[in-house]
Design a protein around this nucleic acid. Structure first.
Length: 546
RNA sequence: GCGCCUGUAGCUCAGACGGAUAGAGCAACUGCCUUCUAAGCAGUGGGUCAGGGGUUCGAAUCCCUUCAGGCGCGCCA
């Protein structure tokens, strides 16, 4: 739809010998009376050409070739050019959609570019919780969206398995295990205290018996830690699968990055570029050479690497793999890291515009309208697994995706569970299920959509509006992909579902007139194709029955 | 103190690179099931786009400033 208008515009602008930036600003106007598509291009050119926008719009409009797809071209308001399509264009477009399905809906804006998306990357020291879930939902949908927009996407999970957190995990399980066997080993001050630690200790006991009874942590710590760590990975993987997140292509281990000597060599590389210096017996990265407001320590006075040092190595590793775009999805509490990682990227000579951090804001979990403070250390948190049991994976994902990633989000357990029947996700899924039901019913009524369907039977305003709505879907995907904002799809889905519910209520699909019925069935099928496609990109299921 | 995010209807949030009369859902109120799924439909009310200033043909959108909330500012991870 947009493509066709854009082609005409390019021709007209060429004829006028003016160039403007691509892609064109072509939008769906707010009011239906303004036409089907609209462009403010003339207004943008007003400054450059030093002519009134309306005059420019007229010049452009007069040079637009009408190839039969446009019913009307109007200049309106301060200088918009509004386009209205002919019915025959709408019918033939719908026909193509029905025939080609998914491939008709795709714009190849990625052109095969390789994208790395790192997301979730929760510390492997316990089950995922609701905060991680938002990152998982956004990251997963973003990857799907980019993939469907012609990018080659790798999904990656970074494991912070080298630091003391994992050791602390092992120590916590060790302590509980010994306590279960009657030893008075004291629980580590800053150990993990969740119920799952007790469960792990019990499982360890069941599996190994009293093998480690009375042993010092020095002696059995490595065994227990790696045993627990592996189980945490299994747990996290299981939670992600249950949540409906597509498999990660790679799990990168911080420990392995160290083991390969990548940290040392990354810092050496920066040194050669002159961004590393020594001061106060520590080694620093000169991030102030870029946008950071202070330099950062990479090797501490005691000779240990900082956490930042391995981040440098990891991001160099990302660069070395030759991606066109690198995306990090982080919790918003890490926003202070953006400038220093950007500095690293720049220091390595990477074009900073190709590095994008998507901040996912905190989820403010409420219970009975009261904030519910979560702490993994203290063991008071709502796990993702609990959320899935309580609220459902689809609902949880959909709610996360009805907000911009960087907006704060209240997630009230009472509201979400109590009103689940009125949840927006059901509204959308219900439309899909309704259509499935109609399509299933049709053969019994002797009606079958298929070849030779006369789509020109669809003359009701609601039908034409629905067709147009379907045809704008590729624009929604394109905008969502270009801005890395999957939530736009969610809003489109609610609009489309709403239009369908209204249509369903006012028009009987399977009626006395078989020709009309066939046409309406085809329209329904078109709506279903788009609904299930968009739900699929969001990672939400599209049930046939509800 | 500095930095980042946020502030739009009673509540939760959309609002494309600055464009046309600022939108949706929920909640409230009123109607609609003998017909393909009522997890639905139709209607009503609801706004100083936090306040102030600026930029221009035009600002919820950009700039400055004030206020409010959240988060971050370690040779922690």
């Amino acid at each position: 739809m947009k493509r066709d208008v854009a082609a005409l515009l390019v021709e007209a602008l060429d004829a006028l010998h003016v160039s403007t930036r691509q892609p064109f600003e072509i939008e769906v106007p707010r009011e239906e009376s303004f036409g089907d598509l609209s462009t403010p291009v003339a207004m943008g050119l007003a400054k450059v050409l030093k002519k009134p926008p309306k005059k420019i719009a007229e010049d452009i409009a007069s040079r637009l070739k009408n190839s039969g797809i446009l019913e009307k071209i109007e200049i309106a308001g301060p200088g918009f050019i509004n386009f209205t399509f002919t019915k025959s264009y709408l019918y033939s477009s719908l026909e193509q959609l029905l025939r080609a399905e998914k491939s008709y809906l795709r714009e190849n804006i990625g052109e095969g570019k390789r994208v790395l998306v790192e997301f979730v990357s929760a510390n492997p020291t316990g089950p995922l919780h609701i905060g991680h879930a938002r990152g998982a939902a956004v990251g997963n949908a973003l990857c799907n969206l980019l993939e469907e927009s012609g990018f080659r996407v790798d999904r990656e999970y970074y494991l912070n398995d080298a630091g003391r957190q994992v050791k602390l995990l092992g120590l916590s399980v060790y302590a509980r295990y010994q306590q279960m066997l009657g030893s008075d080993v004291t629980f580590p001050e800053d150990g993990y205290r969740g119920q799952y630690i007790d469960d792990e200790a019990a499982a360890l006991l069941a599996e190994t018996g009293e093998r480690y009874k009375g042993a010092r942590f020095d002696a059995c710590g490595l065994d227990i830690t790696s045993w627990t760590y592996k189980r945490m990975l299994v747990l996290i993987g299981r939670d992600l699968r249950r949540f409906g997140v597509k498999e990660f292509d790679s799990w990168v281990s911080e420990k392995e990055i160290f083991a390969k000597g990548a940290v040392t060599s990354a810092i050496d590389a920066l040194k050669q570029k002159g961004f590393i210096y020594e001061h106060d017996h520590a080694v620093w990265f000169r991030s102030t050479a870029f946008k950071d407001d202070k330099d950062r320590v990479v090797i501490k006075r005691d000779g240990e690497y900082t956490y930042f040092a391995s981040d440098i190595a990891y991001h160099k590793n990302k660069l070395d793999r030759g991606y066109d775009i690198i995306i990090d999805v982080w919790g918003a509490d890490h926003h202070g890291y953006i400038s220093r990682i950007e500095s690293v990227m720049q220091a390595f000579g990477y074009d900073i515009t190709k590095f994008k951090v998507i901040l996912v804001q905190m989820v403010n979990l409420l219970k009975h309208g009261e904030p519910f403070q979560m702490s993994k250390r203290a063991g008071t948190f709502v796990t993702l697994s609990d959320m899935i049991n309580l609220v459902g994976a689809d609902t949880t994902k959909f709610i996360f995706l009805t907000r911009k990633a960087d907006s704060h989000l209240d997630f009230d357990l009472d509201v979400v569970t109590a009103t689940s029947a009125e949840n927006p996700v059901f509204y959308v899924q219900y439309a899909n299920a309704r259509i499935s039901s109609i399509l299933a019913n049709a053969p019994g009524q002797g009606i079958e959509a298929g070849h030779g369907t006369d789509l020109s039977q669809l003359t009701a305003p609601a039908e034409l509006s629905l067709i147009k709505k379907l045809l704008t879907y590729p624009m929604v995907l394109e905008n969502a992909a270009r801005s890395f904002e999957p939530h736009r799809i969610t809003f489109y889905l609610q609009e489309l579902a709403g239009m369908f519910h209204t249509y369903y209520h006012n028009h009987r699909v399977i009626g006395d007139d078989p020709v009309l019925s066939r046409a309406r069935l085809s329209l329904c099928r078109g709506v279903k194709i788009v609904l299930s496609d968009a739900l699929g990109i969001l990672g939400v299921s599209a049930p046939e029955k509800m």
